[in-house]
Design a protein around this nucleic acid. Sequence first.
DNA 1: GGTCACCGTGTTATCGTCAACATGCGAGAA
DNA 2: TTCTCGCATGTTGACGATAACACGGTGACC
Lengths: 314, 314
Amino acid sequence: MADVAAAAGVSGQTVSRVVNGSPRVDPATRAAVEAAMASLGYRMHRAARALRTGRTDTIGLLVSTLATVGNSRMLQAVADAASVRGYALTVVTARGEDAVADAFARLHDQGVDGAIVLNEATAAARAVPAPADLALVVVDSPIDARYGIVQTDHAAGARAATAHLAALGRGRVWHLAGPEGSFAAAERERGWREAAGAVPPPPVLRGDWSAASGHVAAAALPADARALFVANDQMALGALRALSERGRRVPEDVAVVGFDDVADAADYRPPLTTVRQDFDALGAAAVDALVARIGGDAPEALVLTPTLVVRASA
Amino acid sequence: MADVAAAAGVSGQTVSRVVNGSPRVDPATRAAVEAAMASLGYRMHRAARALRTGRTDTIGLLVSTLATVGNSRMLQAVADAASVRGYALTVVTARGEDAVADAFARLHDQGVDGAIVLNEATAAARAVPAPADLALVVVDSPIDARYGIVQTDHAAGARAATAHLAALGRGRVWHLAGPEGSFAAAERERGWREAAGAVPPPPVLRGDWSAASGHVAAAALPADARALFVANDQMALGALRALSERGRRVPEDVAVVGFDDVADAADYRPPLTTVRQDFDALGAAAVDALVARIGGDAPEALVLTPTLVVRASA
DNA sequence: GGTCACCGTGTTATCGTCAACATGCGAGAA
DNA sequence: TTCTCGCATGTTGACGATAACACGGTGACC
């Protein structure tokens, strides 16, 4: 910075003003400084700036696992949104509940300005630290005053899926739910129950989001079940295999609807009818909410409505 | 730090020595300092340390897309390995070739100590910056003196897959390759050609790694083709659908082998025979190689041999 | 007897940047 | 004229940590 200042014939403070876009710089001076920066290949030193300002322009992403396609998609959306807004993104993974507290500590040590939490939040919520100085946005979580919320309206998506299946006239709609303790799984299950209306729904089957768990769980589906709403696409993949192995055709014998609309779902057999989450919008909204919180605002919880994508499986 | 020093009755320098694990500290003094740190809840300020030392203890990951399951798995492996070694990880995405240079600039501005590149490297290699001060490790790339290399032996995996198919006595083995310009795709194609031996192989089909592209490409497979090696599992998913739509049974009519062994592959229909990449080992190796380069070493290129996982599709 | 390396700790200078205050100047008001 | 004000710019002093050096005493070695 001193070299740039010398080359432009100004003080370091003026270079700082140019770098930070202060309006109180004469256009000619600004041009001279910019020319000097370009010719010297000057790049600002983030650590020095962070030391002086107390901000790092870095946000953290705490994610439980990247094994689910949904989390991967969210990570990409968050990374892109953060980059556009001038923030760097540092990623930490936290498998298991006690790892969450440790992950927060690592992020805090890192000096991030705020963090986005992508987790099975009803479990993780307990480990969320007190407000402290860390701005937080949690994706898919019950409302909590300590942090910002961004989520898909899982229940609405589940109602749409269940209603679509019910309209097929296949009798009761079965549900293969996500793991206990997951907010998203609980909401999707709630939507399914609500759509069942007065009719008592059949017992719920349960998996852990993985295709393998879907395969196992769907094996418990009774022979007379003719409509199945699966809480995510990957479990639906496993369920499709289980049905096929038992000689049951989809959609003729059993209609199946998934959730997420992962990229592969259109190439399942048959192509999967599913509920599409807009991961890009969700990721961008999470970053926006976090940036607002870092700036001292506390925007309202944002809820995005998913849409049903009808393909061949139902 | 000054508060800790005052509470422990020592100088700031001694606190620094305790924090950095210097051996030249009297055990009693060390204990006093640690007690002071604990009671004051002291946490080191990374930006200040980075300013003084010139190191950030942060590594970057430059990734083209997280839409492929392989990249997601690698990201997770790298994140975990970095965390274990005391490095933070910042992620930048770079879609398209010109974005790569920009992504490097962003990483450099961030002040990372080094970076791992996860990309279709033959294209990205052109954009890789001169050695400069940024240590680099590129995953799946042709040898280049400017950076470290870590890779799977794609050709060996492809040879194993092709040999397995050939041993089935289905005649010539067809290949659905990855996109042009991808190092991994080229290597897998090379392995397939080598395994064909003296027999001239059939023309290659080509996709872009996505299931949708696999579906399209497999439509061009001639009716008499009875063995197919697909360059990744997701394209194999699309190919399985295309074959099914044409009434061809797998494995009875056509035997299919994939590559990667993503988690879902065991739940494809039929469960996919595929070549397993050890993403965790690859990610850990990439971080190790990068840390070594940051430390001034230049370890040799590391090549991991994948293994064939035989399931029902071949 | 002299040189040297080491012990555990303190003192000082420094890393690159930016906020606060200071300064000199010219335009307009009194 | 003189005073006041706002503008563009300069000067100074942190921000929190650590590297380099200093300290006086001691044992190993030539």
